[in-house]
Design a protein around this nucleic acid. Structure first.
Lengths: 197, 197
DNA sequence: AGGTCGAGTTAACATTAGTTAACATTTATT
DNA sequence: AATAAATGTTAACTAATGTTAACTCGACCT
């Protein structure tokens, strides 16, 4: 939980910590809500963003979604409605990842709970960290996962050494996916990694 | 695309076909929106639901989310806002360019998603920036793409150094297109570049 | 306790992307 | 034609990332 006074501070905070949801005003000094959203999306942050605004013009709403926002609430609003919308956005993240969740990745099957990666009845049990990294990539499959966010989530800190560890795990994961060339972990220089299939 | 006249018909339709998004009124004969959402969720359908309602009470909104809805729009609403919210739910916003988009440029094939530039079964995987620049040119193929606009889109700033970088990427792209002389990146002095083929 | 096995990290080296710099060429203007 | 500005081209440089192997440590086994 963090309160930022303008877009610049918000941007810094997001890069420093890791959040489940961002609630942002459109009109802010220094960096407005649209630009904040745009910058975050450009840097691979997929954190859901809910915009608050006093103006009710449709173009504002449209622009809000186009710049990468996920929801929009016009002022004045009832606090209950805000709460429920934030919950909806946050819930999207954890979207019922039950014990039996299975990710289908190309010809592979990945079961995070048991760390099993299977292809053609050939099972590999991934080491814990490899599994965690893969899970994180699966959750945002097709989207770029920000390196720093990933490090903060899994290692707790995004220093240089942890980054290098991550590089190693990415290599190892790539090796696992060699038998199906439609599966690919793409690196987005300076931003993060993207699981594609 | 399917239009159902009440909740019961909607339920049947969803079970029969497969949808990306459901837009539903709250008040419907036979089976209201809340119950529809509840039933669908109970049966394991995760299709995003957007509720429309005439009543603006906060409790309605809250109930809408609690029964499994994903978004809520009060009547009267602007059609643009509905469209943009549906798009947001369908998750298609960022992907106006689907993952499979292929540009045919003379004898070349360019697949932005995988950054592949192919000619006569000879594949090159373009570096990220080269790919982005080419994509930008492709979108406005035959038209002049303004240099400053392009720089602001891809680099975020159109200063002198970024301009010089762009010049380098244009050269590199031209080199890739050397085998088919019908393809050309023309420079429009003082304005921008034009991809012609 | 000693051994060994595997996971995670660190280290060392290789490769690549992106930028900058330096110099060449073209174009517009006078 | 002379000049200045824009653009073309090539190579060098820097930072990020890829890859492989070595190292450390704890769990487990005897």
């Amino acid at each position: 939980m963090h309160l930022a006074y303008d877009g610049v501070q918000a941007l810094e905070a997001v890069k420093r910590e890791s959040f489940n949801v961002i609630v942002s005003d459109i009109m802010m000094p220094n960096l407005d809500g649209y630009s904040l959203a745009k910058k975050l999306r450009a840097e691979g942050y997929n954190t859901p963003i809910l915009f608050l605004t006093a103006r009710s013009a449709t173009e504002d709403v449209v622009k809000g979604f186009e710049t990468g926002g996920n929801d929009f609430l016009k002022k004045p609003f009832a606090i209950d409605e805000l709460i429920v919308r934030v919950k909806a956005l946050a819930g999207r993240l954890q979207a019922q990842e039950s014990a039996e969740t299975v990710y289908i990745i190309g010809r592979y099957e990945f079961i995070p709970a048991s760390k099993i990666l299977r292809i053609d009845n050939c099972e590999t049990i991934l080491p814990a960290r490899e599994s965690e990294v893969l899970l994180r990539l699966c959750r945002d499959a097709g989207k770029t996962v920000n390196t720093s966010a990933l490090l903060k989530e899994l290692w707790g800190d995004d220093n240089y050494f942890n980054l290098r560890s991550l590089n190693v795990y990415i290599t190892r994961l790539r090796n696992h996916f060699k038998t199906d060339h439609t599966v690919e972990i793409e690196s987005v220089r300076g931003i993060g990694y993207k699981l594609k299939y």
